[in-house]
């Protein structure tokens, strides 16, 4: 690769500004998390008395001791990991298989199905009607209730579909001439070419399930089956509705505890991304395809 183009003065100034801006961006996103991390190890009076800090004066681990005093958190964490993994695989499978035919402009009936899908981006039946469907399928109190109702995100489906449309048609044609069935083309040609998009949406789906607290709350009565986010909501509590009962001083989760819970609920899923990053290397395969 020629590097000459980067040597000009304008180019260097651009690089300098670009690097500074992105580092700045990285910092403003990192600092709050560091504050939350520091706060989770700080005493309650320190959190009350210092506006912002990145290192606690006195190192306290009582919040984490409290959280891990029982096996509830560990169990919820394991449950969540399993549900997230299984759910992501199912969601990806359904999304990819549905997006592929929809990317074929010549497929009769495609427009109808696409219209049906787009309609659901805009309209939804609401919480109670969906709950009734889940109940009638006998999924209440089952982990499937956390996966199946969210199995395809229409938004993601359409994006994946449009990615498939951008794939070079010539390659698929070539495979067909070589005797590949549509299944074969999908499996052997399309999927390997779609690694970046698969990586992206496995992350999006995984994070979606991971962060979902409404489904377990509505569909799971048995508290021993609760996932991490229910416990998180439980302990952080200070959401919109709850603030109304500020006068009802029953159990006030301490700030430190809230921070610790955020740390525990965020770190595992944060570690997911770096593993996916390698699939974002420019032009993984497509670069080798001649259009």
């Amino acid at each position: 690769m020629s590097v000459n183009q980067y040597r000009s003065v304008g180019s260097r100034i651009f690089d300098a500004i670009n690097i500074a801006a992105l580092v700045g961006l990285g910092l403003i996103t990192l600092l709050p998390l560091l504050y939350v991390l520091a706060g989770s190890f700080a005493s309650e009076s320190e959190i009350s008395s210092r506006t912002f800090f990145l290192w606690p004066e006195k190192f306290v681990t009582s919040t984490y001791e409290y959280i891990f005093a029982t096996d509830v958190f560990i169990r919820a964490l394991l449950t969540t990991i399993v549900v997230t993994l299984v759910g992501t695989v199912i969601q990806l499978a359904l999304t990819l298989t549905m997006a592929y035919p929809l990317a074929k402009r010549y497929l009769p009936g495609r427009a109808l199905v696409l219209n049906l899908v787009i309609f659901t981006v805009v309209f939804s039946g609401g919480i109670i009607p969906t709950y009734l469907v889940v109940r009638d399928l006998g999924l209440l109190n089952s982990y499937w209730a956390l996966i199946l109702p969210l199995a395809i995100n229409p938004f993601y489906l359409i994006i994946v579909k449009s990615f498939f449309q951008e794939l070079p048609e010539a390659l698929e044609e070539a495979a067909r001439i070589d005797g590949c069935t549509e299944m074969g083309v999908f499996w052997k040609i399309v999927l390997p070419l779609s690694k970046p998009i698969i990586a992206t949406f496995s992350l999006f789906y995984a994070v979606g399930i991971w962060n979902d607290y409404m489904s377990p709350l509505l569909y799971i009565d048995d508290s021993s089956k609760w996932t991490l986010q229910v416990l998180v909501r439980q302990l952080t509590g200070a959401d919109a509705q709850n603030a109304l009962s500020a006068m009802e001083t029953v159990f006030f989760p301490t700030q430190g505890l809230k921070f610790a819970v955020v740390v525990i609920a965020t770190l595992p899923i944060l570690c997911f991304y770096p593993f996916l990053q390698k699939h974002f290397v420019k032009g993984v395969l497509i670069g080798s395809v001649k259009e």
Binding site: I127, Y213, M214, L217, L218, V230, R233, Q234, G237, D239, Q241, N242, S245
Partner: peptide, 9 residues
């Protein structure tokens, strides 16, 4: 039921 989402439930 977690307090924060009680009404929803």
């Amino acid at each position: 039921v977690p307090n924060a989402e009680y009404q929803e439930k």
